[in-house]
Simulated assay, not measured.
Amino acid sequence: MSKSLLRKGIGIVVSLFLVLLVFSVLLPSASAIALSPGTPDSTLVIAGAIISFDDVTLTIRAAEAIPVKYLTYVIYNSENHHKVASVCFLIDGTEIFDAPSESFTVVSLTNTENLPYQSGGHYYGYDERTGKNVYRYRYGYGYGYGYGANDLTLEYVLSYTTCKPGTYYAKLFVKTQKHTYISDESILFTVDQRPPLSIYVDIKPGTIHTKEKGYLYVTIFGTNTFDVETINPKTLRLSLGGGKNIVKTPFWWYENGANQYLDLLLKFRIEQVIHVLKLFKHPDETLCLKLTGSLKKTEDCYSVVGSDFIQILTLGKSKGYHH
Rank of each mutant, 00 (worst) to 15 (best):
I246V: 15
V228S: 14
K244E: 14
D263N: 15
E212P: 00
I270L: 07
N232W: 00
K267T: 12
G243W: 01
K290Y: 03
L240M: 06
K278M: 08
T223A: 03
N245I: 02
P283V: 02
L216E: 08
S239N: 08
T235P: 07
N259F: 00
L277T: 08
V228Q: 13
L262F: 08
V276C: 02
F221I: 12
N256T: 13
L287S: 05
G214A: 09
L287C: 06
Y261A: 07
V276S: 07
E285K: 04
P233K: 04
E271C: 05
I270Q: 06
V273T: 05
G257A: 10
V218Y: 03
I246L: 14
W253C: 11
L264H: 03
G243P: 05
T230G: 06
N256Q: 12
F221Y: 15
K278D: 09
C288M: 12
H275S: 09
E255Y: 10
Q260R: 10
Y261C: 05
I231C: 08
V228H: 12
E255D: 11
F221H: 15
G242V: 01
F280E: 05
I220Y: 03
E271I: 04
G243M: 02
R269H: 15
F251W: 13
G243D: 08
E255Q: 11
G243H: 02
Y261Q: 09
L240V: 09
F226C: 14
L262T: 13
H275W: 09
Y215W: 11
L240P: 05
T230Q: 11
G214I: 05
K244W: 02
L277F: 09
L279K: 01
K248C: 14
E271P: 09
K281P: 03
V247H: 12
G214R: 05
I220S: 06
V218M: 07
